[in-house]
Design a binder for these strands. Sequence first.
DNA 1: AAATATTCGCGAATCGTTTTTTGCTCCGGT
DNA 2: ACCGGAGCAAAAAACGATTCGCGAATATTT
Lengths: 354, 354
Amino acid sequence: MPNASNGDRNPTSGANGRSQRVRIRDVARAAGAAQSTVSNAINGTGNVDPHTRDRILEVAAELGYVPNRNARSLRTDRAGMLGIVLSTRSEAGEVANVSYNLRLAGGASRAAFRRQNALTLLPPVRTPEEAAHLVPDGVILADIELDDPARAAFDVIGVPIVTIESDPGNPHESYWVGADTPTNTRTGLDHLMATGAKTIAYMGTDSTGTWSAQSATAYRAWCEERGVEPIAITVPRTQTVGECAEVLRELLEREPRPDAIFALTEKIAVTVVQQLGDLNLSVPRDIRVLSGSDGDRAAQALPSISAIDLHPEEVGAAAVALLAELIEGLDTERPRIIRATLNARESTTGRVTR
Amino acid sequence: MPNASNGDRNPTSGANGRSQRVRIRDVARAAGAAQSTVSNAINGTGNVDPHTRDRILEVAAELGYVPNRNARSLRTDRAGMLGIVLSTRSEAGEVANVSYNLRLAGGASRAAFRRQNALTLLPPVRTPEEAAHLVPDGVILADIELDDPARAAFDVIGVPIVTIESDPGNPHESYWVGADTPTNTRTGLDHLMATGAKTIAYMGTDSTGTWSAQSATAYRAWCEERGVEPIAITVPRTQTVGECAEVLRELLEREPRPDAIFALTEKIAVTVVQQLGDLNLSVPRDIRVLSGSDGDRAAQALPSISAIDLHPEEVGAAAVALLAELIEGLDTERPRIIRATLNARESTTGRVTR
DNA sequence: AAATATTCGCGAATCGTTTTTTGCTCCGGT
DNA sequence: ACCGGAGCAAAAAACGATTCGCGAATATTT
């Protein structure tokens, strides 16, 4: 009984268990029209007189008619369902870049919902067989890496794909949404320089994804333009605090000692800031730190960490939009680039902004 | 062309665009049986001779038959789709407790997938009208609070509901999965005491959810049993580092000064540890800190923070299982309690465990 | 005014399953 | 010998929408 409100108007509770919502034929009967006309009126298809269309819509609204998705799906061969794979690689299921991914998924979910689509969270799919049972109309692959098994799996069963950032294994594929990483990296580096940095080091990950690769490349290019030697180091994905500390110590022994660090991920940035505090180095006075991705952790660190906000919600929404257009067969603008913004915080400016 | 592999065997590419996978009638023809028999063989329903069943299954496998979900859904009135709402409250879309929620969703996703179901990520749903368009077979409501609009919305349209933690508005409803919060809280408090704490303060949130409420209650009960005065303070959900610092400073001026803090969330715990470092108090020597929920942030903090691991993946998986049984109409054991474990780290033991 | 388009709406077919109904065969009991 | 039931398989009827083809009514052109 706590599952309350089983009143008369409850749309489910058929004796046979089938949901007893209003069907199109009920609307047709009530409006004195044919099913096909009701269908056309609702979907805006075919030729229906504006007057009758309005009448039908009114009746439909009054009756609370909601089309049965399953019937519609069968007829139109569309599931009304998009998939998103947040992480292909992690076996244990932990998803890296937690904050980014959750915001990405949230943005995509809302965008899909607005389009009357469901966004389903797919576990790491590796084979076509796995993918064949749950066939979405299209799929978004986040965090795609070189030779991604998920891409292959969905390609084989013919499911349209949009990736977050370009697929490093298919550089000519244009159906992706992402950031202008080279520009963003430069923006970050410029910001560090503008706050007084002379020697900027780069700490990235060993990911084979495009974001990571392009960031590192942009960093080197930026250094080359200025005739300075790049100082780029890589932190293994499975970094522990200890490893990171070691890498950092090495970095600080260089001559001249870097006075700024561009940390690709929030996780690296937070660890770096912690370690620097431990080594009695002042942030930002001695060393400035900037994170290549923003989120809770960067914002909440002490000192708070300046970061590039990649606007993952917008990326997710754009991915859904592009995917929908790909499914429709529309030939729209692509790739879609979401402009990032720089959130300057204490780790570079030395005071709380805002 | 990068969307490769449009060979002959590509299952989609019908001239009319309809997916041209093998249908049940193809299997029937190839096996020399009726559609109904194939259906029965595959679903293990009805009476079919074991011999013919095997033959049919063999043929089906050979042809690579995969049932059309849309047709099946129409016939059975099951969408094969479960929904999960991660956060009802946040308007802007930011989900609190990021790490917990993402792990929860991941666990649920895998469990659903194993059952050939899709787990769809639903945006905060507030009205029945919003909920009516995408009707899942059942829905998981995480982070449910008092008078949750999502519960009401899904109740009205008759969608079965399982909540994460019990619904504070429906205390007699038993379809929920969660932790044994009273026990977990005590475990944490006992651990703090075992590591030498005498005066333990509690910092929780202003959430109206069950987890928060039960934690606070358990804390007070624990104090009462020991005849000590509880020191419980609440951090507003929208806490900034500044506010938290202020609250903490007050806390530390009490007489006697607390020598341990039970912080309900990772976020609070991390902030507390940072602030304590800033105030030149040693963790854990002067003050021990324990987080009521575990995740990346607690593990990676400096010093690393001991925390109660609520095993959100298991919670998600159990929620899917319970929801599936609720949908089936099975009367199984409930609620489902997932046992938590304590991860002792530097913030209480003063050394790296493991 | 006749011929020809065009608009509008209806009925029926269809999507690919599952489920119900029907039918056949075989067997044991009276 | 006949009946009843069990076992198996085929045929047919759903499920609820969309879409196709066609005719009737109306508008437009010759």
